[in-house]
């Protein structure tokens, strides 16, 4: 698999398209036209810039798309990311207001064509509230991301997740082996996947939709705090739709996209790699575990015709 690990530094990103081309990433992408990802910026979003950087570091173009632009013009992008933050200040419920806006209607339609859509943290809440995830019956509200249990409110820490579906099922985990364990940070107050629909979880397993589950460092799925940081059903951390092109992810891959960001005390190979990288800026700017989520997206776009 191709893993561009070159460093990408970009000047202030407001309009990034042309800069990305110029700075490039790994040489293999220069020849091809880069895929263009819209990063949706709602009032209250706060992870759009680092998400854009992670996208660019993975060999794609990123453009931050402000909420009050013409939603119809979104169809010209190859894929979409709804980043973390507090869209509309979590008013009514986290993700509930954003889910009703025209932007999500457009994205819903584009996703049906097979374009990849990633919702991170608050973005995952938006995907659930808009009925795109789990999407067993697309558009129907089948789950909730409920307030955490186990802590009083917001919880931010690094956790481990285990890849729990077959390799290649989900557009965003194409570079992860089945049962691969890796660290990412969570940071939310409402991240507990729940449903009251009988049999839904079972059919999601059947469909291979349970993509990531919280686990111990050695991949054991234990339902106890802090292994399961929010009390999520079956330790679920990330769910894709039946087709695999829409992914709701509570942990933040953009905060684990560079080795620099990884703590040196999570007890896994990435912590060790960070320690090995000590003193070398070059190595600190190499990919962290979350980068593969974005690289999978790129690989999906380049190889899967939709």
């Amino acid at each position: 698999m191709s893993q561009p690990n070159s460093r990408i530094f970009l000047p202030k990103i407001t309009k990034v398209a042309s800069k990305t081309q110029k700075l490039g990433s790994s040489s293999s992408h220069k020849l091809r036209e880069m895929k263009k990802i819209a990063i949706i910026q709602y009032p209250g979003s706060n992870c759009e810039y680092e998400t854009a950087r992670a996208v660019m570091a993975s060999g794609m173009e990123a453009e931050i798309f402000r909420w009050n632009r013409d939603a119809a013009s979104l169809d010209e992008y190859d894929g979409y990311i709804i980043p973390g933050g507090f869209s509309y200040q979590d008013r009514v419920r986290a993700g509930a207001i954003a889910a009703k806006k025209g932007i999500m209607r457009t994205i819903f339609g584009e996703a049906a064509k097979g374009k990849p859509v990633l919702g991170i943290c608050n973005g995952a809440q938006v995907l659930v509230e808009s009925g795109m995830i789990p999407g067993v019956n697309p558009g129907e509200l089948e789950m909730a991301l409920a307030p955490n249990t186990g802590t009083s409110g917001y919880y931010c820490n690094w956790v481990h997740v285990v890849h729990s579906t077959r390799k290649g099922k989900c557009a965003f985990t194409r570079f992860f082996e089945k049962s691969e364990v890796f660290p990412m940070p969570v940071a939310h107050a409402e991240g507990r996947f729940v449903t009251r629909k009988k049999g839904l979880i079972e059919s999601m397993y059947d469909n291979g939709q349970i993509v990531l589950r919280y686990s111990t460092v050695d991949g054991k799925v234990e339902d106890r705090f802090p292994v399961n940081p929010n009390g999520s059903t079956d330790n679920i951390a990330g769910i894709c739709n039946p087709a695999g092109n829409v992914f709701a992810l509570m942990p933040h891959p953009e905060r684990a996209a560079w080795l620099r960001q990884v703590p040196d005390d999570t007890g896994d190979e990435y912590a060790e790699a960070k320690r090995d990288a000590y003193g070398s800026w070059q190595r600190m700017t190499e990919a962290g575990p979350g980068r593969k989520i974005f690289e999978s997206m790129r690989e999906y776009l380049e190889n899967i015709p939709y």
């Binding site: 419920r93 209607r105 509200l141 089948e142 729940v194 629909k197």
Partner: peptide, 16 residues
């Protein structure tokens, strides 16, 4: 009752 992207707002019946 929120039943889909297009209908209902105040309650998500899976948690509320």
């Amino acid at each position: 009752l929120t039943s889909s992207m297009n209908s209902g707002l105040l309650t998500n019946s899976h948690s509320q």
